[in-house]
Nucleic acid binder design. Structure first.
Length: 227
DNA sequence: ACCCAGGTGGCCC
DNA sequence: GGGCCACATGGG
């Protein structure tokens, strides 16, 4: 079975450092995480740009702004009936518990912050962990659709449940902030370019480790032999 | 004209 | 716990 540390080395060698999360402040990481769900990143990016242009890109401002105003600005991110409310709800919460100060917000025990995030609307496990890892500097492993697809195809695990996949990486990879950040980012890079719904295995840097590819080749050679 | 994207919540069994 | 579905936009 493939070693997840070796997979990391290969992906890093192929794709290089990803400089993730793509944002210039912790608050932008959070806004991005909330607006990104089920949407191409460029659309979440456009929504953030609109908020910035409108001078409405800060916790206090968004906590006070009318939902209609936020809706108009974040429209390119889609799901406009839920995302504006999620963004506003987070900001209201942040203002309430930490006067809008993210440093204070994160200066509490990991489990406390994680449970709080999960209680907010639109914040599920992936969004919560992304925020904790990339904005809060907590070494917690982020699992997304790419992580599950790639891990399953490689044969690392046969699991789809968020907690189970997260536990797999946290027990098989050294718990390190920079490493966890880079690993997740590399999964996304690999998933976007290679390990897609229709995979491009010819260009895959880990295909020799991959259970999916191995069985693909086996089927192919059987068919060839039958001719 | 489809299919897809770095999910989440609601509802049912 | 699992299975299914709606949600909305913009790009391939």
């Amino acid at each position: 079975m493939a070693d997840p540390r070796l997979v990391y080395e290969r992906l890093y060698a192929r794709f290089g450092p990803q400089h993730w999360w793509p944002a210039d402040s912790p608050f932008e990481v959070i806004a991005g995480a909330l607006l990104m769900a089920q949407t191409a990143w460029r659309n979440a990016e456009a929504a953030i740009a609109n908020l910035k242009r409108a001078g409405l890109f800060d916790p206090h401002g968004l906590a006070k702004a009318p939902i209609q105003t936020i809706r108009r600005l974040v429209k390119p991110a889609g799901l406009y009936r839920s995302k504006p409310r999620r963004l506003k709800a987070f900001c209201e919460h942040l203002v309430r518990v930490a006067d809008g100060d993210l440093t204070r917000f994160f200066a509490r025990p990991f489990e406390t912050v994680r449970a709080e995030l999960l209680s907010l609307p639109g914040v599920g496990p992936e969004t919560a962990d992304s925020i904790l890892l990339y904005a809060g500097n907590f070494p917690t492993f982020v699992v997304d659709a790419y992580t599950i697809r790639i891990g399953r195809r490689l044969g690392l695990f046969d699991e789809e449940r968020y907690g189970a996949v997260k536990a797999y990486f946290e027990s098989h990879v050294l718990r390190d902030l920079a490493l966890f950040r880079e690993y997740h980012a590399l999964f996304v890079a690999h998933g976007k370019e290679i390990c897609r719904p229709r995979p491009r295995c010819e260009a895959c840097p880990v295909r020799d480790l991959c259970a999916y590819y191995t069985s693909l080749v086996r089927r192919r050679s059987v068919r060839h032999a039958q001719r």
